[in-house]
Design a binder for these strands. Structure first.
Lengths: 109, 109
DNA sequence: ACTGGTACATAGTAACGCTGAATAGTGGCG
DNA sequence: CGCCACTATTCAGCGTTACTATGTACCAGT
């Protein structure tokens, strides 16, 4: 997909990760792998970790360090109340955008 | 809406403008006004002009200077073949993203 | 002359994702 | 033991994009 998707992901990738964390808690490496499975094949590892640091500093997630059998300890993230609120706000903004875009797409035919 | 929408617009605003220009040619001031009407109330004028310069330099649009009765001459933009191709590519990327997001939204319920 | 509406342009700033590399622990293989 | 693969996190530097703020220019009405 390339550069176009890269730019579109700005602002939405955070929502994607929050949405993942709504279902279950997870750690960075796991989230990266999951994203690749879902078709976001070219998302850099570093991007996910930076994003996680960001949402942690904003207080949207709780963090727990869990020792791993294979490698260094995992930082397991889980969505807290504030994070759930932020996620809802994200979906509202997303809906606004998709509605406008869908209108434009229809109109152009 | 605020900052969240600002970030989401990155990468999509260009597609929005191209989609507008698919229907009919238009000039910057007109596009800005139209965007405000459609609910993108906080898009700055400067943003639109900068975007138009960008897509012109990439060769996605043709430009014609048309004298205006009220003020300085208008720069009227119209989508050319390369621009239409780029727009189609944009819709493909957009579809990819919306499908993934919709899945996530469903799964989270 | 002054104000207001039309129309375009640009310099500086902030946010976000990518690149590329470094660091570190564990287990398996020869 | 030494090397490699896998797991897991972190960081510096970069490019792209949208916003802020400001400036230029032209014309009509009062």
């Amino acid at each position: 997909m390339g550069k176009q998707l890269t730019e579109m992901l700005k602002g939405t990738l955070e929502g994607v990760v929050l949405a993942i964390l709504l279902g279950r808690s997870a750690y960075g490496y796991e989230i990266t792998a999951w994203l690749r499975d879902q078709g976001f094949s070219d998302i850099a590892e570093g991007t996910v970790y930076a994003l996680l640091v960001r949402i942690e500093q904003r207080g949207l997630v709780d963090v727990e360090k869990v020792p791993s059998e294979k490698g260094p300890p995992r930082k397991v993230y889980s969505l807290n109340a504030q994070g759930r609120e932020h996620l809802e706000e994200f979906w509202r903004t997303w809906s606004f955008l998709t509605e406008r875009l869908e209108q434009l797409r229809e109109g152009g035919k």
